[in-house]
Computed example of a mutant assay.
Amino acid sequence: MKDYTIDITLSEARKEKPVAEQLQFGKTFTDHMFIMDYTEGKGWHDPRIVPYQPLILDPAAMVFHYGQSVFEGLKAYLTKDEAILLFRPDKNMERLNRSNDRLCIPRIDEEFAIEALKQLISVDRDWIPTAEGTSLYIRPFVISTEPFLGVAPSSRYQFIIILSPVGSYYKEGIHPVKIAVESEFVRAVLGGTGTAKTGGNYAASLKAQQVSNLKGYSQVLWLDGVERKYIEEVGSMNIFFKINGEVITPSLNGSILEGVTRNSIISLLKHWDIPIVERRISIDEVYEAYKEGVLEEAFGTGTAAVISPIGELFMKEEKLIINNSQTGELSKKLYDTLTGIQTGKDIDSFGWVVKVN
């Protein structure tokens, strides 16, 4: 880890904290933020924690015009013993650097990035909610800041971390959601930016999500961008199907984002000796499994929602009701186990949890 000293300026005007039970996802932000600058020829420099505030950027800043940006998402939890826990932050910082590489953004020092977010969380520790299902969401991101209207990598960047106390990502919580199979738009293709966590991927997904929302569906199920038949992701999550006792998740194919929660779920299933396969799976295979009565469960996985059971798939003008629109036994067990480890309620036999203090 590079020897940086983080300058800390505390806010003199503290915000009123929201009622934990009324928290929505991503609507409220804490008193402070972390910022670090990059200048070509100088590298990353001037790490600091400052009061949460608007950014001042030139209108020609390249992020506005060419979308050179990446981000991550992870959570902090407060245990009953007042310890602050992070869940696999090393995996998030590894992925941030993979995204940086794809977007031609200079790599960050991963160990220092974790140390920076630890210090930021310590400053704003009073913002960590303790109500059931709540946590402190952490959003590290990098943006290009050079004022230049030319299509080329920027020579200047900012690495920023902001914090947000959150409730459930979906209003349904752990209860099953309804998903529409997307047949018109695509999320990503091999060789594109699907494996990077960059804003442009999400901007491109909004139209399909908007259309599905109007029809009463929470999210869309994305198919591959070439043959339009192989399943990739669900909304902004990885997806799993339990078919005739075996769990299947799409293999990482160069267009699917490698989720930290996905990786953790696979490890848990292997630990429990539950058959888990990473391979290509078509929407027709899922449809046939449904018709044969062997599609037992389906669920999405991601940092924000952790586990999101799927109770209905809308495809071919037909509603496929999965597990009677009830949360499946495996989905519930995975959710309880993973959140138990994350919050310190259960033993972490995998070495995933990192203490902040």
Rank of each mutant, 00 (worst) to 15 (best):
M1V: 11
D3L: 12
T5G: 08
D7A: 15
T9Y: 10
P18M: 05
F25T: 11
D31Q: 12
T39W: 01
V50L: 13
Q53R: 15
P59M: 12
H65V: 13
K80P: 09
K80N: 15
P89I: 01
M93N: 11
L96Y: 02
N100M: 06
F112D: 00
A113T: 02
E115K: 14
I121H: 04
I121G: 00
V123R: 07
V123K: 08
A131H: 14
T134W: 00
S135N: 01
S154P: 03
R156C: 11
I161V: 15
E182C: 11
F185R: 08
K197D: 00
G199Y: 00
G200W: 02
K207E: 11
N213T: 14
L214V: 02
Y217E: 03
S218Y: 10
G225V: 05
K229I: 05
E233T: 10
G235N: 06
F241R: 04
K242R: 12
G254S: 07
S255D: 12
T261I: 14
N263C: 07
D273G: 03
I281M: 07
K291Q: 14
T301V: 13
S308I: 02
F314A: 11
N323A: 13
N323Y: 13
S325H: 15
T327L: 03
E329N: 06
Q342L: 11
S349L: 12
F350H: 10
W352C: 04
V354Q: 12
K355C: 07
K355W: 03
